[in-house]
């Protein structure tokens, strides 16, 4: 049994050493925060974006995200909370959330520019 445990550990270390880092292209293209960014960008590029209230924008984005992400996806859980967070802090909160999920260099220009305009208006 001890031999089995040591073998498992050695295999795990070898696989980890041979694997690309978290910031490699393969992992940053298809993570759930990139899906969130993609859907957010599509929303901001839609013709009606400027006509909608910030709550209506959030509602539309939520509909899109609930089809694109699993309810258990970190990005979806983060979105559900951050949409009601302080508008001026939202981009930093999304970045914190992505970082905590292992995506340290996650960026999203659309969220950076319009993140404060999508979600609760904090009246």
């Amino acid at each position: 049994m001890i031999k089995n445990i040591i073998s498992c550990l050695l295999i795990a270390i070898s696989v980890s050493a041979c694997s690309p880092g978290k910031d490699s292209e393969a992992q940053t293209i298809n993570n759930d925060f990139d899906v969130f960014c993609e859907q957010f960008t599509l929303l901001t590029e839609s013709a009606e974006f400027s006509q909608l209230s910030s709550e209506d924008r959030a509602s539309r984005l939520d509909t899109k995200l609930s089809g694109a992400l699993a309810p258990s996806a970190n990005a979806y859980i983060a979105w559900t909370a951050i949409r009601n967070g302080p508008p001026s802090e939202r981009y930093f909160l999304y970045k914190d959330a992505a970082s905590s999920a292992g995506h340290n260099h996650w960026e999203c220009p659309a969220v950076k520019q319009h993140g404060h305009e999508v979600g609760s208006p904090h009246r």
């Binding site: 970190n74 983060a78 909370a81 967070g85 909160l93 905590s100």
Partner: peptide, 15 residues
Amino acid sequence: FGAAPPAINAMTIAN
């Protein structure tokens, strides 16, 4: 608190 990372759980708690 949940299955997400602690920083995201903290946001969920406030929400």
